[in-house]
């Protein structure tokens, strides 16, 4: 038995040496690619990632294996991503602005910065939405803001976690209408928000369109505003914050694919082209739109700029969040 395993390991070393020397960029990819998702299997990032992977691997000629490295709000997975070799065989999803706030929050002691990623392509942009229970006294955003001014710090507003995009969105709303303050309650996500809103433990929730669109359509809840400059095609009757006169309240969460820093341009181009085709594939588009999730492809300079802008904005509100007294 030991002899046999020895033979095996020798063979493995020889094989590794051979393939190692043969690895050149032109024959990329010559082995399976790992696509990291920094959230557990079954979540919305994971589901969409698997659809993209199943389409893109056909064009790529090599399997794309989705690996879930969930935990710590994505920090575990992103830590692993930046530690990989930039050879294109390990790429992963980044979720802006969550990736940014993990970097920016000094308490988290993240070992990576925004410069440790090579952005490849953005897949999804899900705008923020403000919503209440269907029988809530707040019929409009103005009702909410007026109430927030009248008795500051008493309206219980739910985020989907500390320093989530929804947390930042509440701060933007406070900034846009000075004097209106909300009592922040950090919940675990959309499902928890819905439960507490329905039970009357929370007055207003900040989340993304994709999480709530079905419940708005069924009439269980009311969306007050979408935090984007154009209306969501899934909620065409809901005004945007821009329309309502609050153009600075602009919040969303995005998902895109990135590699570790220092990836050669040729690899980035190759991956980007294949992934772009997969993201624009009708099957992928249909499955995401059924859930109310909007696709937004961004590549190259556009995506890099978006990353940088998101980072700057997240920086401002993260600092604010850290200094804001809880109420």
């Amino acid at each position: 038995m030991p002899k046999f395993t020895n033979c095996l390991s020798v063979a493995a070393v020889v094989l590794a040496a051979l393939t190692g020397t043969a690895t050149a960029q032109q024959d990329f990819p010559n082995k399976p690619i790992q696509l990291m998702v920094a959230f557990p299997a079954g979540g919305s990032t994971d589901i969409a990632a698997r659809i993209v992977a199943s389409i893109a691997e056909k064009a790529l000629g090599q399997p794309i294996v989705v690996v879930n490295r969930g935990g710590a709000g994505g920090q575990i997975g992103w830590t692993e991503l930046v530690r990989q070799k930039p050879d294109g065989y390990y790429i992963g999803f980044i979720n802006l602005p969550a990736t940014n706030t993990v970097i920016l929050d000094p308490e988290r002691k993240a070992i990576f910065t925004e410069k440790d990623f090579t952005p490849i392509i953005n897949q999804v942009l899900d705008p923020g939405v403000i919503w209440v229970r269907a029988d809530s006294p707040y019929k409009t955003v103005q009702d909410l803001i007026d109430a927030g001014k009248k008795s500051p710090g008493t309206i219980r507003a739910a985020t989907t976690g500390i320093l989530s995009d929804d947390h930042l969105a509440i701060l933007m709303t406070e900034e846009a209408a000075p004097g209106a303050k909300y009592r922040l309650v950090h919940l675990e996500g959309g499902a928890a928000q819905f439960k507490e809103i329905m039970a009357g433990n929370i007055d207003v929730a900040f989340d993304n369109v994709g999480s709530i669109v079905k419940r708005v359509q069924s009439g269980e809840v009311r969306a007050l505003a979408v935090m984007d400059d154009v209306r969501s095609k899934f909620l065409p009757d809901v005004p945007t914050m821009k329309e309502l006169g609050y153009p600075t309240v602009m919040s969303n969460s995005t998902r895109g694919i990135a590699g570790p820093k220092g990836m050669p341009a040729a690899l980035v181009t190759k991956l980007r082209d294949v992934l772009k085709k997969a993201i624009e594939d009708p099957e992928h588009v249909k499955k995401l739109e059924e859930q109310g999730i909007a696709i937004k492809v961004m590549v190259g300079e556009e995506y890099e700029k978006y990353f940088a802008d998101t980072h700057a904005k997240a920086k401002k509100y993260t600092e604010w969040a850290k200094n804001r007294p809880p109420m």
Binding site: A72, G73, Q75, V102, R108, I162, H186
Partner: peptide
């Protein structure tokens, strides 16, 4: 789970979760 700060992890990434 609320503030996002690591606790009792001794700096070992495997303990972050």
């Amino acid at each position: 789970p609320v503030r996002g700060a690591p606790r009792f992890t001794l700096g070992i990434p495997s303990l972050y979760d």
